[in-house]
């Protein structure tokens, strides 16, 4: 019995790995998406808008199955076309991370776009007047201030993302949801195992909330807050 709990605990490392890797991909897509939506190029704006609207209208699970099964078939087709007889399997970790990253990149796009828009225009104009390049302006002036405006939305997206990693179990990645389901089938006592996994998720979400609240306090230093009551 204890061995099962231990394996679920080990699976939680996989959950964290999937979540963090997906987050990295999502932040990348989010920055690209925000850049596209804020660019003067109409085509880029349209592409960014289609990305965020379409992704948010399709369930995570359907996209994941599409990437996993579709990707496997597409790759095999490609390999056969190149004259090889080998068959390729997509790694569920890679498929999960790419799908979750792509999906939450759409949510991050909106968060980052709002954060960039919240920074007064004068900031980047002043940077340009000082002779900074566009990259330098972004890294030194925009990005540090963006963090404060983006953190609340980022926190939300991250919490939803962690919980979505449970879906990767459905394409066979052995993270804690998958392992708890296996343990349930083997021992016929699902209640305790699922409760244990739920508790682990709760630990992750609670810890994230605490860390991000600290970060929020840190990045909001020096901002004045008015009290209504």
């Amino acid at each position: 019995m204890n061995a099962y709990y231990f394996s679920i605990l080990q699976g939680s490392l996989m959950t964290v790995a999937v979540a963090l890797a997906s987050l990295a991909v999502a932040v990348l897509f989010g920055l690209l998406g925000a850049a596209a939506r804020l660019s003067p190029n109409r085509l880029a704006v349209a592409a960014g808008t289609v990305y965020t609207t379409v992704i948010r209208g399709i369930p995570d699970l359907v996209l994941m199955l599409l990437v996993f099964y579709g990707g496997t078939m597409g790759l095999n087709y490609l390999v056969t076309a190149m004259g090889s007889k080998a068959s390729v399997d997509i790694n569920p970790f890679v498929a999960g991370v790419l799908t979750l990253g792509f999906i939450y990149g759409a949510y991050m796009t909106e968060t980052f776009r709002g954060a960039i828009l919240a920074i007064p225009r004068g900031q980047s104009e002043a940077a340009l007047a000082f002779g900074m390049g566009r990259a330098q302006t972004f890294l030194r002036i925009i990005a540090p201030q963006m963090v404060r405006y983006a953190l609340p939305g980022f926190t939300n997206n991250w919490l939803v993302l962690i919980k979505s990693t449970a879906l990767v179990s459905l394409i066979g990645l052995q993270e804690m949801t998958y392992l708890s389901k296996q343990a349930s089938a083997a021992t016929r006592s699902p209640f305790a195992f699922f409760l244990f996994t739920a508790a682990l998720f709760l630990v992750f979400t609670s810890a994230s909330l605490w860390v991000l609240r600290k970060a929020n306090d840190h990045y909001s230093l020096g901002t004045r807050r008015a009290q209504l009551h």
């Binding site: 919490l159 919980k163 979505s164 990693t165 449970a166 879906l167 179990s169 459905l170 949801t177 708890s180 389901k181 349930s184 699902p190 209640f191 699922f194 409760l195 996994t197 739920a198 998720f201 709760l202 979400t205 609670s206």
Partner: peptide
């Protein structure tokens, strides 16, 4: 709100 819906369905 802190746990995945999938786990809730399984539970």
């Amino acid at each position: 709100r802190g746990t995945p819906l999938l786990i809730q369905v399984y539970l």
